[in-house]
Amino acid sequence: MTVALRTAGDAAFPAAGYLVTVAIGTNPAGGTLTGTTVVATDDNGVASFGDLSIDTPGTYTLTATSPGLISATSAAFTITAASLLGAAQGYSRRGHRGEHGRDDAPATPATTSCAA
């Protein structure tokens, strides 16, 4: 998952060093988010989260926050028992991973934006 900083007018905001935190927003299944949840933006204003996972099947959203900026919430996505089983058995298919770090997760927007 990536988070891109955007202006209130939805233009790119290329600024390095902003700390972006990702957390579960909608969590009806009671899942736990693991992985690196705080990442600094690069020179293009993009924070890349490459190792996030949620341990319980269900439908979730993720929320991205950064001090002084408006937060953003991802589109809803679903984690299935099959995707958890494949990961537990070591069948991680890097390169075919769904958004938000889960195998076989449905397609969701790859970028969530925080407004500056």
Rank of each mutant, 00 (worst) to 15 (best):
A16K: 13
S53Q: 01
T32H: 03
V46G: 06
S113I: 02
A12D: 15
G35V: 05
A72V: 02
A87F: 01
T37P: 10
S66W: 03
N44P: 03
V3T: 14
A116V: 14
G86D: 15
A12K: 03
S71N: 08
A105L: 11
L85C: 06
S113P: 00
T65L: 04
A64Y: 12
P67F: 07
T65Y: 01
G45L: 09
D55V: 11
S48L: 09
L62A: 02
L62W: 01
A23L: 05
D10V: 05
G25E: 02
A105H: 06
T36H: 08
H96L: 14
L62F: 09
V22P: 00
T7A: 09
A82P: 11
T26M: 01
R6D: 15
A82T: 15
T32N: 08
A29N: 05
T63K: 10
F49W: 01
L84H: 11
L84N: 07
V39W: 07
V3L: 10
D10A: 13
R93C: 04
A40G: 01
N27W: 02
S48C: 02
V38E: 11
A81G: 15
A16W: 05
A4W: 00
I70F: 11
S48P: 04
G45M: 09
Y91C: 08
T32P: 00
A107Y: 02
G9D: 14
A107N: 10
G45I: 09
D43N: 15
L85Y: 03
L62N: 03
G86H: 08
S48Q: 09
V39Q: 08
G58H: 00
P106N: 15
T59E: 03
T63P: 01
P28L: 07
P106T: 11
A105G: 13
S71K: 09
T21E: 13
V38C: 10
L33K: 12
R97C: 08
P57R: 00
A110P: 11
S92K: 10
T34Q: 10
R93W: 08
A105C: 13
A15M: 12
T7D: 12
T73R: 05
G58T: 04
R97F: 07
A29P: 13
L52Y: 04
I24T: 03
R102I: 09
T7V: 07
V46A: 14
L33M: 08
A12F: 00
A82V: 12
A40F: 06
G68R: 06
I24D: 03
T32S: 12
D10Y: 06
L52A: 03
T73Y: 04
A11Y: 00
R102E: 05
T78K: 11
F77D: 10
P106G: 15
T2M: 12
A116L: 10
A8K: 05
E99L: 09
F13D: 15
G30R: 05
F49P: 14
H100M: 13
T34E: 02
S113T: 14
H100D: 13
A81Y: 05
S83Y: 08
A75D: 12
A47T: 05
T112H: 03
P67C: 11
S66L: 01
R93V: 11
